[in-house]
Simulated assay, not measured.
Amino acid sequence: MSFLEATAQERADKAHGESHYVTRIGWLRAAVLGANDGLLSTSSLMVGVAAAAAGSSQIILTGVAGIVAGAMSMAAGEYVSVSSQADSEKADIERERLELEANPEHEMRELAAIYMKRGLPKALAVEVVTALSEHDALEAHTRDELGITDTSTANPLQAAIASAACFLAGGLPPVLTALLVPASAVLWAIAIVAVLTLGLLGAAGARTGGAPILPGVVRVMVWGSIAMAVTAGVGHVFHTAVG
C-alpha cells in the first residue's frame, strides 16, 4: 500500500469512527436536571408570588432565595444520593475481590457462563475468561458480572457541583426578567421566558445525549407550563382569600 493510499485509509477510518453518548450520562443527567429544576422551580415560585399581587422587590427576593436554597438542596441531595451509589459499588467490588481470592476457579466458571449466555461457544468463553483473568480478573468480573464500568461509576462531587451550578444558571433567567420588566407585566414575562428557556434546555439536553430533539422540547415545555399554571393559580387563590 502506497503512502497516499495509507493516508486515505486512515482518514476513512477516522470518518467512520462511531460517536457514542453513554460516557456523558453521568454529568448530563445532573446538568439537565439541575438546569431544568432551577429554571422551573424559580419561575414557578416567582409566578406564584406575582399572581398574589406582590411587589417587584418581593418577587425578586423570592427568586434569589429560591435559587440559593434550591442550589444548596440540589448539591446536598445529589452528593448524598450518588455517594450512596458509590458506596454500594465499592462494597460490591470488594466482595467480588474476596470471592476471587477465595475461589478463583468458581468465579472463572461463573464468568464463562455469562459469556456463553451471550452467545460464545464454551471453548471460546473459557479462552476469553482465561485471557482476561491473566490481565485483570477483578476488572473483568466488575465489568461483566456486576455491570460496573468507568463510564457508569458514580462520582458524588462531580454530580453535586454540576447540579448546583446548573440550578444557579437555570434560575437566573426569571430573576433577570423580573429585574428588567415592569411589575405590571412581570408575571407573563417570567412565564414566557421560562417556557422558551425550557425549550432550549430540552433541545440542548437531547442533542448532547444524542436523542430526538422534538420530544425533549415538547416534554419540558408542556410540563413546565403546567407547573407554572398551577403555581400561579395557587398564588391567585391565596391572594383572593387573604384579600
Results as ranks from 00 to 15, higher is better:
S2F: 08
F3L: 15
T7W: 13
T7G: 15
E10S: 14
G17R: 15
S19A: 12
S19V: 15
I25D: 15
G26T: 07
G26F: 03
W27N: 10
L28C: 02
A30E: 14
L33R: 00
S41K: 10
T42K: 08
M46F: 00
V47I: 14
V49M: 04
A50C: 04
A51Y: 04
S57P: 01
Q58N: 03
I59H: 05
I60L: 09
G63T: 00
G63W: 03
G63H: 05
V64C: 10
G66I: 01
I67Q: 08
I67A: 10
A71V: 03
M74V: 04
M74E: 06
A76K: 03
A76G: 13
G77H: 10
G77P: 01
G77T: 01
S83G: 08
S83D: 11
S84W: 03
S84P: 09
A86C: 08
A86H: 03
S88G: 14
K90S: 13
K90M: 12
E94Q: 07
R97K: 06
L98P: 10
L98H: 09
E99L: 13
E101A: 14
E105K: 09
E107W: 09
R109G: 14
E110W: 09
A113Y: 10
I114E: 00
K122C: 04
K122W: 09
A123P: 09
V126T: 15
S133C: 15
H135K: 15
H135E: 13
H135L: 12
A137F: 11
R143T: 07
D144M: 07
E145S: 11
L146Q: 05
L146V: 02
L146N: 09
I148P: 03
D150W: 07
S152Q: 02
T153N: 08
P156K: 01
A159E: 01
A159N: 11
A162V: 12
A162N: 09
C166A: 15
C166R: 09
A169W: 12
G170D: 00
A183G: 12
L187D: 04
W188G: 03
W188P: 02
V193C: 07
V195D: 09
V195R: 11
T197E: 08
T197M: 04
G202A: 12
A204W: 00
A204S: 04
R207P: 02
G210D: 03
I213H: 02
L214K: 05
V218K: 03
W223E: 10
G224A: 08
S225R: 06
A229W: 06
T231I: 13
V234K: 05
V237M: 13
F238D: 12
H239Q: 09
T240R: 10
A241G: 14
